[in-house]
Amino acid sequence: MSADPYVLRVNGRDHEVPDAHLGESLLWVLRERLGLPGSKNACEEGECGSCSVQVDGELVCSCLVLAASAVGREVITIEGLAPDGELADVQRAFVEAGAVQCGFCTPGLLMAVDTLLDADPSPDELTVREAISGNLCRCTGYGRILAAVEIAADLRREAS
């Protein structure tokens, strides 16, 4: 069933969403209607974290957000992590540390790590592991990702 057109605020910009079906998830709308495919679709049941975005600053699975219900919220996706075109600290750290292999889990992990470091600039290893435990990675075994979080935390502390 079609929904009335609505507006989503994503990465600091308002996006009109016309012709939407009511049952479309935020993930679907981001990827297929707003041309923002950086958030990934690996399970669509909240078990992999590949679709993680920030909604009003909270990390959530965009596959489990009904798109039309996010009206008036501030949505930040991987495309909005570094709005000025330069890579953000977490992004640089992932490249440098070798935390990226196939890269499918990467956008979701970056959103999770960015959220973590905002809340806790110096997380210990167990805190990091718990914070990213909702983001499955099948390539890396997480070792380089943990290394990347350390680098990113350093970068963010240096910058602040």
């Binding site: 990390l59 699975c61 435990s133």
Partner: peptide
């Protein structure tokens, strides 16, 4: 329950 993402929602 689930993951941090799930617990936030």
């Amino acid at each position: 329950v689930g993951s941090p993402q799930i617990r936030n929602a």
